[in-house]
Amino acid sequence: MTDIPFQLEAVRNRITAACRLSGRPPESVRLLAVSKTRTAAEVERAMAAGQLAFGENYVQEAVDKIRTLSHLPLEWHLIGPLQSNKTAEVAAHFAWVHSVDRLKIARRLSEQRPAGLPPLNICLQVNIDDEDSKSGCAPEDVEALARAVLSLPNVRLRGLMTIPRPGNTPAFAALSALRDRLLANIPALAASGFDTLSMGMSDDLEPAIAAGSTLVRVGTAIFGERATRKQETQAT
C-alpha cells in the first residue's frame, strides 16, 4: 500500500524546491491531489496528512465520493471534460471547475449553481497544443470567451488550465503569456480574482512552476500508480 503521507511530503518538497529555484515563495503554488479512481479511504488518509483540495475527472464517481465524505471540510475540483448533461450535478457539488472550454457550459454552471452557495470558481481550459483529441478552447478564442464568462452572475473566472502533450514544457510559458495578455486587454479580470494558472502534473510540475503555475495537479506521485479502468469514460 502506498504511503500517502510520505508521498505527499515528497511532493510538497518538490514544490518548495521548484519555487526556490524560480525565486517564488512556496505558498504561491497550491497542490491539488488528483483522486480520480481512488477510494474515499485514500482521500481520508491524504486529508489526515493535511491535504484538503482534491481533483476528480469523472462526475458520477466524484459525486458519490463527495457525498460519502460530506462530513469533512474538503474542497473539490472537477478537472475532467464536462458535457452539458452533467452541469447541474457539478454546479451543486464542486467548488472549482478547471475544464470550461465553451460559453454554453459556463452559462449552464452559472444558471444551475444552487442559491446559498458562493460563486463557482472556474478556469478556462486551453488546448495549447491544438490537438484534435484534446478538449479545450483554442488560444485565439480565449479572450472572447473570458469576456463573455465575466458577465455571468454565479461563476467566478479564476484563470486558465492546460494539459500539454508530454514533454512540451514550452506550452507552460505560452499559457503564462496568454494569461498576461488577457489581464492587459481585459482590466476587469484583475478585479475578479483572475489569479490561477492550473498547469503541471506529477512528471512536469517543476517546469510548470518555473513558468508561473499557481496550482499543480498531482495524482500518481501521491497515490501511486492507479489500476487501469476497464472502461475509461470521460466526464459526460
Rank of each mutant, 00 (worst) to 15 (best):
M1N: 13
P5L: 07
P5K: 08
F6Q: 15
Q7P: 04
E9M: 06
E9F: 05
R12M: 11
N13P: 00
N13T: 15
I15D: 03
I15N: 01
T16P: 02
A17Q: 14
A18T: 12
S22P: 06
S22D: 09
R24T: 06
R30W: 07
A33C: 02
A33T: 01
T37D: 08
T37F: 13
T39R: 10
A40G: 12
E44M: 07
A46D: 05
M47K: 10
Q51Y: 02
A53D: 15
G55E: 01
N57E: 11
Q60A: 05
R67N: 12
L69Y: 00
S70P: 00
H71F: 05
H71E: 06
P73W: 03
L74T: 01
H77V: 03
G80W: 14
N85P: 00
K86Y: 04
K86R: 10
T87H: 10
H98D: 15
L103P: 05
L109W: 03
S110T: 03
L120D: 02
C123S: 15
L124P: 10
L124F: 07
Q125A: 08
S133G: 12
K134E: 08
C137K: 12
D141G: 13
L145F: 08
R147Y: 01
S151N: 11
L152V: 08
V155Y: 11
R158N: 13
M161D: 04
P164I: 11
P166K: 05
G167Q: 07
A173H: 14
A174R: 15
L175S: 09
A184V: 06
P187G: 05
A188G: 07
L189I: 09
A190R: 14
A190T: 09
S192C: 14
S192W: 06
D195R: 04
T196R: 06
T196G: 00
M199C: 05
L205R: 01
P207C: 02
I209F: 02
A221E: 08
E225T: 04
A227W: 02
T228S: 13
R229P: 08
K230N: 12
Q234R: 07
